[in-house]
């Protein structure tokens, strides 16, 4: 599987973590995150221990750390929020490098940063070691309502199609001299987004038609059947 082939989050490999059943990995992630979220913010050592465990798992998965690091940019909004918090929160003030910061704000910022980082890293590790299809099959084995799994499987299937459509619309816009630098141009983007939404909706109808034509009555074959 070369670049641009396969899902951008999945890293092809044969580690024990890649081979582990998807439903166990899902349960593991869920359990880990529940524990992390339930830990009080000031138990610094506990967070350190979680990070060590997680890094151990990453090492086991043989996914290059840079591969995961690059994908951790999704965390940026949380980081920004966490950085702002000590400045805007109330409560006891402390001096750090000549700045007056709120102590509860600092603690809350640490809490957000720690849980977000652990959460993102753990989810990325799961995504890197598990094919989307296996993930869906795992959810099915965990008895997640089949309608939800169906919706997710369609999302996985059509993500590329819709992104492709979005790219083509962007290229078509820019080919006619449009650039989105100026905020006054943003309404155009909003309208394209609306058009994309309608196109996707219509595609949904066509897919449904194709399903009916093949005798669809509301139940999908299980994903687990083909592995």
């Amino acid at each position: 599987m070369g670049a641009g082939h396969g899902h951008r989050l999945h890293y092809h490999g044969h580690s024990p973590l890649h081979r582990a059943p998807a439903h166990l990995k899902l349960l593991g992630l869920l359990g880990f995150m529940l524990v992390v979220v339930a830990t009080p913010d000031h138990w610094f050592a506990a967070f350190g221990a979680y990070l060590l465990v997680l890094l151990g798992v990453v090492a086991l998965s043989q996914v290059p750390p840079t591969y995961l690091l690059k994908r951790m940019v999704v965390e940026v909004p949380f980081v920004v929020f966490a950085l702002v918090l000590p400045f805007v929160a109330y409560g006891e003030q402390v001096e750090v490098l000549g700045l007056s910061l709120s102590r509860p704000g600092l603690l809350a910022a640490f809490g957000i940063l720690a849980t977000a980082t652990l959460g993102v890293l753990a989810s990325l590790t799961l995504a890197a070691t598990t094919e989307p299809q296996a993930l869906l099959a795992g959810l099915e084995r965990l008895r997640v309502p089949s309608l939800l799994v169906q919706i997710m499987s369609f999302m996985v299937r059509y993500l590329d199609v819709v992104t492709g459509e979005m790219q083509r619309m962007r290229v078509a816009r820019e080919s006619r001299g449009f650039s989105a630098r100026d905020p006054r141009q943003w309404p155009v983007i909003a309208r394209s987004t609306g058009a994309l939404f309608i196109r996707s909706y219509e595609r949904g109808e066509r897919v449904h038609l194709a399903m009916l034509s093949r005798g669809y009555t509301g139940t999908m074959p299980e994903h687990g059947g083909h592995r």
Binding site: Q133, S153, R157, R206, L209, A210, S213, R214, G215
Partner: peptide, 28 residues
């Protein structure tokens, strides 16, 4: 009556070719 629609992306909605081809007969 088997209809093959114009856009294969409308007709192929499962995760693998095998699962997609199995969809119809499974419904039967």
């Amino acid at each position: 009556v088997g209809i093959v629609f114009q856009d294969p992306d409308d007709q192929l909605f499962m995760g693998s070719v095998r699962a997609d081809v199995a969809f119809g007969p499974h419904n039967l």
